[in-house]
Amino acid sequence: MKKSPAQPLRQAARWLAVAVLTVAGASVAAPAHAADSTTCTGTTQLSYTPGLTLTPQTVTVSETDSVPTCISTDPSITSVITSPYSFPVPNASCNNVQLDPGNVLVIHWNNGQSSTVSGLTYVTTVTAGITQTTGTGTVTAGRFTGAVGVLTWVYALVNPLLCLTPGGLTGQNGTILAQIIG
């Protein structure tokens, strides 16, 4: 019996279908596991140099965070180890401070591990006297690689009268929330 030119194609298609079904069956049969997640809370303190006034200017923001409490699917993670850092904010004034500490942040966990959150984009909203800046990115290295990282800073709106004092507004306190969503 002579093979038609279509027979090798049909045979290849059958082998491809068997391979696809085998791979699909293997992925369906794989055991499911809970996604990793961590939520940490703490306080944040900002220092502005020079102080904020009503006139826009480039200001260096120095941030000191304390994040002593974490709830995690990894029981060895109970807090975040922080250290102060600084970043410039152009056109900052008492009426407009867009916090953007960079598109990459490294979270250092108390257990010696770390998570690098990359591609952070920030959104700042002001509602009912509260300023909230939320940065969202992806964990690209370390613990929780592949998860979503969400960092949120919350501050009360500043009293504009403080911006009229000599030296302007030089500091602000708030809260911080760090979430890893697997």
Rank of each mutant, 00 (worst) to 15 (best):
L16I: 06
A24W: 12
P101M: 01
T133W: 07
N159R: 07
V80Q: 01
D65W: 01
T64P: 00
L21F: 00
V67I: 15
T53A: 12
Q45K: 15
M1H: 10
S27R: 10
A32Y: 10
A141C: 14
T170R: 13
I107T: 15
R14C: 12
A30G: 07
N91R: 14
L151T: 01
G137Y: 12
D36I: 04
Q98F: 05
T138H: 11
S79I: 00
W15T: 01
P5L: 00
T49P: 02
A24N: 11
A19G: 11
L161T: 04
A128N: 05
W15K: 04
V61T: 01
L105V: 12
P31R: 07
V106Y: 13
L120V: 12
A26R: 04
A35H: 08
V89A: 03
S114D: 10
V148F: 14
N95V: 11
V126W: 03
G25P: 09
L52Y: 02
L161I: 03
T39L: 13
V59N: 08
P8M: 15
T78M: 09
S27M: 08
G102M: 04
L99K: 09
A26V: 11
M1S: 08
N159F: 03
L46C: 04
S4C: 07
A34M: 00
S37E: 08
A32D: 13
K2H: 14
V67Q: 09
P84G: 00
G135E: 10
A13R: 02
A178Y: 15
G51L: 07
T53L: 14
S37G: 03
V59S: 11
Q57E: 01
S62D: 01
T121F: 13
P5E: 06
S27T: 09
L164S: 09
V59L: 09
I176R: 00
P8Q: 14
N111C: 00
A156N: 15
